[in-house]
Write a protein that binds this DNA or RNA. Structure first.
Lengths: 246, 246
DNA sequence: TCAAAAGTGTTATCTATACACCCATGA
DNA sequence: TCATGGGTGTATAGATAACACTTTTGA
């Protein structure tokens, strides 16, 4: 039966952002040191309460902006966490978002003044409440979405190389791709514009830089693109141990 | 900056269920006549407020059970709607769920006592607040999820035929599939157990009934299955007008 | 000149699709 | 026996994956 309004207790609504970042060092998660009681000093996700005049999206963007100085970041609503006992004090329901950013681009903002740090997504500290669960779910969600849509470009710099993208995919899915096939796969999306310069830092020959073709990117975003090879993935470690001499 | 708790206004939290149903007549949406002010008598989604002691999932299940007498229904969290002005009175944030049921199975419960009715998903009445937007999003979400996972079996009876499943897919995606290929596609998932009886109602030859192999179904649920042909879909209407004589 | 990464060429294999055709049966 | 789906067979096109091989250049 439907409850009338006046019978209903109100509760607190919050947002938490699972912020993924990437640099040459790998996939990272942004965590902050909590500045107030309860659990002051513990590590947590970036989050805050939703104001009366804003949507949860607005709130998530506001919170993110307050921390990173950053706007226009890629962000998706992920899921609501609402177990009655999830918080330690008052009943708080939280909407989790995941965000993707290029770490280098916002290094300054993040490091200055805030008690925030990047940690490896495979080895991050114990977080408050159910934040660890949220992070694991967000990783799943990122894998899910990035397998079908060109999400991961949001983690790369404006100009990036294909081997760089390959590294990112390989880390996220813990697989290894054939460089030749991977290169063709990405270029065949027609979402990339080849630059004239090469990145000469990571190899002798150097890999061409690419930029996103933002129109093609937007158009192709929602169509299924199968960014990850589907059949059995090659596991990262067991290097092909086939007979080389046919 | 993080807001302290005591600074934050509380708000109402509700759930709304976009309930999709299927019978021989097609894909339907369940709507109810609102029984209280404001907007008494208008059509709306099934919904209600979240209690202090329950999660949003619990609330959605409770609301659905209250309406249909039904438990164990397939249900997914879809999205939070939280525009400050989305409701007409007090600030209410709603978590939308979509649910899938076989209409015939629960015909009794729904028709008796409740002001609920099934309407076509392509032609449903004006709903209150932002419920129309929710429905459209839920249709999108259903298409998205059902293209990759064996979701749609939740809409079919326990024993169903492959042509029946084909009809359902064709309606959801507004395409037409080759019956032979579709049959192979479904059976090749190994999720179906062929029954010995045929359905003799819809054709002379009769199509075999199948049941879900619940173990295989669960196992295969989260792996990408590509249930819908990806390349350009054949549109429903323009019947193949190729030269028949090669 | 050598090693190593980038990325193209080539081929085998697998999947998707179209469509012929056989099957079962009620009328 | 004929018309109507149901469903199998099969041939072709297209995608995927494996891997040889060429290119480039710093050391």
């Amino acid at each position: 039966m439907i409850k009338r309004r006046y019978q209903v207790k109100k509760l607190l609504l919050a947002v938490d952002c699972i912020i993924f970042g990437y640099d040459d060092d790998g996939l990272k998660l942004l965590v902050i040191e909590r500045g107030f009681e309860p659990l002051k000093g513990a590590w947590s996700l970036v989050g805050g309460f939703v104001k009366e005049t804003e949507s949860v999206e607005d709130a998530a963007n506001r919170v993110l902006h307050a921390l990173t100085g950053l706007e226009g970041v890629y962000m998706e609503q992920m899921r609501v966490f609402s177990a009655p006992d999830r918080d330690c004090e008052e009943r708080t329901v939280v909407v989790a978002f995941f965000a993707l950013i290029d770490i280098k681009k916002y290094q300054q903002q993040i490091s200055s003044g805030y008690h925030a740090k990047w940690v490896s997504i495979n080895d991050y500290p114990e977080l408050i409440f159910d934040h660890n669960v949220m992070v694991e779910m967000a990783k799943e969600q990122l894998r899910y979405r990035a397998a079908l849509h060109p999400l991961l470009f949001e983690l790369l710099p404006e100009k990036f190389t294909i081997p760089q993208a390959q590294q990112l995919f390989e880390e996220l899915y813990n697989v290894s791709f054939d460089p030749g096939n991977f290169s063709r796969k990405l270029t065949s999306t027609n979402m990339l514009i080849k630059q004239t310069e090469r990145d000469k830092l990571s190899s002798k020959k150097g890999a061409f830089y690419y930029k996103l073709d933002s129109k093609k990117y937007k158009d192709g975003f929602s169509t299924f693109l199968n960014f990850v090879y589907k059949p059995e993935f090659k596991k990262k470690d067991p290097k092909n141990t086939k007979t080389k001499d046919k």
